[in-house]
Design a protein around this nucleic acid. Structure first.
Lengths: 330, 330
DNA sequence: AAGTAGCGTTAGAGCGCTCTAACGAGGAGA
DNA sequence: TCTCCTCGTTAGAGCGCTCTAACGCTACTT
């Protein structure tokens, strides 16, 4: 920086002002400084700047797992939001290391990050609250009861209701839910299903088959359903993977989808969009969740808001080819 | 830090030594300092440390796109390697921003990152080489002709050879390749196929149908093949997605896989592993690619090596249920 | 003419660490 | 006993910036 100042024939402080795009520098000097910096190939040192200014322009993002597309897409949104707001992203993941999440959080604290986004953290709420004492924290895809922390969650009940209403609208009554066991959001999804069924005066048709978020669970559930006394006319599966497996099993058993049985998935993964699956499914706006998380964080970092906010993102139904009216009773 | 020194009754320099885990501190004083730091909830300031020590313990990772599971899994490996070696990861992506990759690279340079990993960069080689003048750089999933840069690529030819040899071993001769057009690695994959066919004395059976990495391309290619004079007994598709689409189309046309036609995919994505697809496919060791990238970077950062290395990772064949012996000529 | 305001510019004191060189206290060797 | 080492400890000068307060200058007022 001294070199640039020398080259431009001004003081170091003036160079600093130019680099910070201060308005109170004359155009002539600004040009001289810019030219000198370019000539010398000067690049400001982010560490010195961070130390001196306390403005780090850095946020930490803790990701549960990266290879899970669900989280990766949320990350995508966070990343876009961060780039837009001019923040660097320091990534932390737990991997399979024990205490990995805590380590990542500690890193953020040592970095004096301007804020942190925790995506699907498994950390104890107390730990999160402790971190939130040092910097703004937004939690995504998990509700956190703490007034120091903002959160973004998906409205699982609403999604389930959309599914049931769609199927009821097509004329279905015997709608079975294959649930996601103890997976994230599964309980709320199941509750939403039951609530919606009651809302449609179909309380007596409520049927839940145990499952989880795998294709094997889907196969097992399909078998269970095939063996049952009376076949449902529609199924709301825990997720797309299970739904795809079920379609496969039903078609093997000689049933036609959706003529004999309608199937709805959940998550609108790339699988659902595949041409030869073309699954009706519930979409969670993942990139948007990431973007909104960043937006909340920016509000906090700018000090615009100090009260906690819990955003509930609204999922939507994507109707494709696996749902249709039930076969008229013969 | 001064507070900790005061609390422990030692000098600030000694506190610094303890925090850096220097061996030349007596156990008694070390304990005192540790206790004092814990009592005061002291956390070292990474920015000050980075500025003073020039050891940043930070690497930049530029990711082409995060929502592509292929890159996400590589990232997974990088992240694991970085955590192990004690480096923080600053993530940069281009998003859809023009010049986004360059911006990310500039950020790494301003951060004086200890090194950078570029995953599938679209940047010009010259730009990469320029960055490599300031810090060690490893490029993943793209070959780079520069002796200042290390790279990790997949041995596409080897993968193609494995496929052809597997099929030939089953008794196939008429093996068609549906290629990936101008996609990453497609040219090498196609060349590998042709080479392997010639190696098996099947030069006259070489047939390449144009495609790309989408399911629609798979459908189109399947149609092209179905209309052809003589049906191949086996197909090597550009990737799993195209392969899955082709299976669907062939079965719709009344063909049975693998009895009538064997199909091999590429990438061993989660799709291939799906129970009802169970696709024979070529696996690229993605997390390993990430890990090795980190390993190469660490070597450079430690100054252990100054000559450039180009690692070619070896793919493997995952045999599942879509390949079998051809139907005996009737 | 002197005073005042406003502007661009600058000196210099930090920011919170690291690290070199110097220091003092014991113990070994002469 | 004195010197020389070794070892744990410390003083203090940076690291490369930011930022406050002060500065000199021109322009305007009275």
């Amino acid at each position: 920086m001294d070199d640039v100042a020398l080259e431009a024939g001004v003081s170091r402080a003036l160079v600093s002002l130019v680099l910070r795009e201060s308005p109170k520098v004359s155009d002539e000097r600004r040009a001289r400084v810019v030219a000198a910096a370019a000539k010398l190939g000067y690049r400001p040192n982010a560490w010195a700047r961070g130390l001196a200014s306390h403005r780090k322009k850095t946020i930490g993002v803790l990701l549960n797992e990266l290879h899970n597309p669900f989280y990766a897409e949320i990350m995508d949104g966070i990343d876009a939001g961060a780039a837009e707001a001019g923040y660097r992203v320091v990534l932390g993941t737990a991997g399979s290391r024990p205490g990995g999440e805590q380590t990542a959080l500690d890193t953020f604290l040592e970095l004096r990050a301007d804020g942190a986004v925790l995506v699907g953290p498994r950390l104890a709420t107390a730990e999160i609250a402790r971190a939130a004492a040092s910097m703004p924290v937004v939690v995504v895809a998990r509700g956190v009861r703490s007034k120091a922390v903002d959160s973004i969650t998906n409205d699982e009940r609403h999604g389930a209701r959309l599914v049931v209403e769609h199927l009821v609208g097509l004329g279905h009554r015997a709608i079975t839910h294959v649930d996601g066991g103890s997976g994230a959001g599964a309980a709320a999804r199941r509750a939403g299903y039951e609530e919606a069924m009651r809302g449609a005066s179909l309380a007596r048709e409520i049927r839940v088959v145990a499952g989880d978020y795998t294709d094997l669970a889907g196969l097992a559930a399909a078998d269970t359903i095939l063996r049952s006394r009376r076949l449902p006319t529609a199924i709301f599966a825990a997720n797309d993977l299970a739904a795809a497996a079920m379609i496969d099993r039903f078609e093997t058993a000689g049933l036609s989808v959706p003529a004999d049985i309608s199937i709805v998935g959940h998550d609108n993964t790339f699988l659902a969009a595949l041409h030869h699956i073309s699954l009706t499914t519930v979409d969670q706006p993942r990139p948007e969740m990431g973007r909104r998380a960043m937006a909340l964080l920016v509000e906090r970092m700018d000090g615009v808001r100090t009260t906690s906010v819990n955003v509930r993102v609204t999922p939507s139904l994507v109707v494709r080819s696996t749902t249709g009216p039930p076969r008229p009773a013969s």
